[in-house]
Simulated assay, not measured.
Amino acid sequence: MKFSKWTGLGNDFVLLEPGQTPDFGKGFTENVIRLCDRRFGIGADGVVIVTPMDGEGCLVIDKAGVGPASKAVANGIDFEMRIFNADGSEAAMCGNATRCVAKFIVSRGLAKSSDTKEFHLHTKSGLVKPALLEDGRVCVNMGEPRNFLGSIKLTADSYDFTAETVSMGNPHAVIFVDDIEKIQLEKWGSILEVDKQFPDRCNIEFAQVVAPTQIRMRVWERGCGVTMACGTGSCATLVAAQRTGRVGAEADIVLDGGTLHIKHEEDGPVLMTGPAQEVFKGEIVMRG
């Protein structure tokens, strides 16, 4: 199987090259886990599959043969993006992967026109719109934040927290702290992800507002564990900070792997801007 490895601020992904059509049947989950294994596989936080759409809202396999798409897909969608976490579970949305996918589409010549730099991607949680900028970064229209559980109480290892919950197509619980260097991310994140209030598990962010336009954030992603960056988590963190009066319309979110710029005007979509980079290409033999 031919693949390429991509990263968005250290949040890394295996993307299947055009023409690779995986079998989603028996053994698929195990193969995803194997690909993401950092000792026995390629190593990644997830596996991403990008499929072009034709003008009738159908999936196009290797630009030949047409298969039915999800009923949620309508005309005008350019590509379908499916994301699988390192534990084999399917993610509804991933902001960092979206930026990588936009650059992947351009670099592989998959767009309908070589001049096209903006795309409509269909995901399990809806539509996202990445656009390549002149400086090489990617700006993604992530859509509007959605209602989740509001402000809730959480407990981990005898510590009590107040979390602001935000959905960016996937669930987030943002916990604001005074000193992010003192958090026990791996220990607390693993407990809070599976709190009884989250029947489908939850992404956990710890955040410290260090300036009116800067937030330091660390993340525990459901299905992955500690990651160096989370795009949807950064969006959720800004929205949570806005709701609690901590910041204004935009801020830099400083992650372990680098910085994302997030902007959210009232009643508008969340815009996420940051880098994406191809690391290498390869071919791996898959088990049957």
Rank of each mutant, 00 (worst) to 15 (best):
G88V: 15
S89L: 08
A91K: 15
V66L: 11
R99N: 07
R82S: 10
R99T: 08
S70P: 14
G109F: 03
G67N: 11
F79W: 07
I105N: 10
E90S: 03
V66H: 04
K103H: 06
A86V: 02
A111G: 10
V66R: 13
G67C: 14
R99P: 11
I83H: 01
A91H: 14
I83E: 01
G95T: 05
N85V: 13
D78I: 03
F84Q: 05
A74G: 10
G95N: 08
I77R: 08
A86W: 01
A69D: 01
R99H: 09
A97R: 10
G109W: 02
F84W: 14
A97H: 03
F104C: 10
G65L: 09
G109V: 02
C94A: 11
V73Y: 09
G65V: 04
N85W: 07
D78N: 08
L110E: 00
G65T: 05
G67A: 15
A111C: 04
L110R: 00
G76E: 03
R108I: 09
A86L: 03
S107D: 14
F84T: 06
A102G: 07
S70H: 13
F84E: 02
G88T: 14
G76D: 05
S89W: 04
I77N: 02
R82M: 07
A111Q: 12
A72V: 04
M93F: 10
G95S: 06
G95K: 10
D78L: 11
R108K: 15
A91T: 14
I77C: 10
A92K: 14
I83F: 02
G76S: 07
V101A: 15
G76F: 07
C94E: 05
R82T: 12
F79E: 04
F79V: 06
A72H: 12
K112A: 07
P68W: 00
D78F: 07
K103C: 04
C94N: 07
T98Q: 09
A102W: 08
G65N: 11
F79A: 06
S70V: 12
C100M: 12
S89E: 06
E80I: 14
E80G: 13
R108F: 02
G109S: 02
C94S: 15
D87W: 08
R99G: 05
S89F: 04
I83R: 02
A111S: 12
A92D: 12
I83M: 11
N85H: 06
D78Y: 05
A72Y: 08
K71T: 13
S70D: 15
C94Y: 04
A91G: 13
S107N: 14
N96C: 12
M93A: 05
M93W: 10
N75W: 06
A86E: 02
A91R: 14
